[in-house]
Write a protein that binds this DNA or RNA. Structure first.
Lengths: 211, 211
DNA sequence: AAAATTCTTGACCGAATGGTCAGGGTGCAT
DNA sequence: ATGCACCCTGACCATTCGGTCAAGAATTTT
């Protein structure tokens, strides 16, 4: 039917199927943990026979590795919010905003990441030691520069970053608890706005930045 | 040998053995997750035959339930820091301090709790809906009273609590990541003091409380 | 159109897991 | 000393899991 039934088709189709499996895997890994997840559950979630999943991803660990890797990429992308800022109000504010947005749109991914780190990062330890260390060091320097410029209080940049990570990811990782405490209802749009504003306000004021 | 070889002995011995198993289980559940943990691993960690573990805890789920329940108790105990305070500086400050201390001394427990909530709290949902909801509501009222008394900024008490939970527990749940970012060394005593002070300072200043 | 490549899948396998149980050991009360 | 209740554990079992495979279905290339 389509004139573009060309050699690319097959590659595209493969990629599409991989994406379907990866999404299903992200969901199941988040819900069940690595040990609790089974290839059968993932296959069911992807609506495919188990053997077919194994055709695209040879082992459970290989599939898990790609899921975690994908999240790490998303995470790094949000980190870009930092780059284009010339002051803490904008830089840190946008970063918090970006991370809150990820918690809202990719909660399963956040949980997989949390689970991986909590269990000692057996799969992505090398990423932590290279990419994450570099990124963190560079951000610390940027924050230190802001401090020296008198744009914010002389707090520990490292612990500030931890606080931002912890608080923003909490809305994904502990989403179930938050929902339970919210009369068993997921946060509405308006409630998300309040959450974002609260987090930004407390942290920015806490480090001496006026908005 | 001991004169107190009395009728109590047997009960004590039972309790002692249960504690050994519970500690081993907490460690293994934290490291491997519920699905990844095996009764054999727990038995090995407790230095007991697997069948003996099953003698004290009939099923894996029963053992897990008690581990999670224990953490919840610790958690509630720390919440007491709130009670005896007549202002946010003392109340919230002490609460942060207490939660940081738990993260330091019971990291495995914190991880088990996080894992349980992340997977939808299949075991302790009832605790969340009753005890935790009540505790949270009562704390929110206390904070609201402080706000009305002009002792702190009019922020959302709910999101403040989430931030405190997230940040303090982060030091346990993401301890591995923090260690990796700390030149692969666990936080020293001095570094822990910096962490505690940083968290307290940013949050307290962030909500308009002067220390 | 036919050869070659890639996909698809039901059936199957060895290994591991949660849990059981029978039979023996240990310590306490009488 | 003897009976009794609790404690211990090696051997065992049914089930489930990750992963394999062979044979066929689709699709692309020649």
């Amino acid at each position: 039917m389509n004139p573009d039934t060309a050699p690319v088709r097959k590659q595209n189709k493969r990629r599409e199927k991989e994406v379907v499996i990866l999404q299903a895997a992200e969901k199941i890994f988040a819900e069940e943990g690595f040990g609790g997840a089974t290839m059968q559950l993932i296959a069911d979630a992807a609506d495919l026979p188990k053997a077919n999943v194994h055709y695209y991803f040879s082992t459970k660990e290989e599939l898990y590795r790609q899921v975690v890797s994908n999240i790490f990429d998303v995470w790094l992308q949000a980190a870009g919010s930092f780059e284009v800022a010339d002051g803490p109000a904008e830089g840190i504010g946008a970063y918090i905003e970006a991370k809150m947005e990820i918690s809202r749109t990719r909660p399963a991914g956040s949980k997989v990441w949390a689970s991986e780190v909590m269990h000692g990062a057996p799969i992505i330890q090398d990423y932590l030691e290279t990419t994450l260390v570099e990124w963190t060091d560079s951000r610390i320097k940027a924050i230190d520069a802001w401090i020296e410029a008198g744009l914010m209080d002389p707090i520990s940049p490292r612990h500030l970053l931890y606080m931002i990570w912890a608080t923003t990811q909490h809305y994904a990782d502990f989403g179930h608890q938050i929902k339970t405490l919210n009369r068993n209802a997921a946060l509405s749009d308006a409630e998300w706005q309040v959450a974002k504003a609260s987090v930004k306000q407390i942290i920015l004021k806490g480090i001496g930045v006026t908005i």
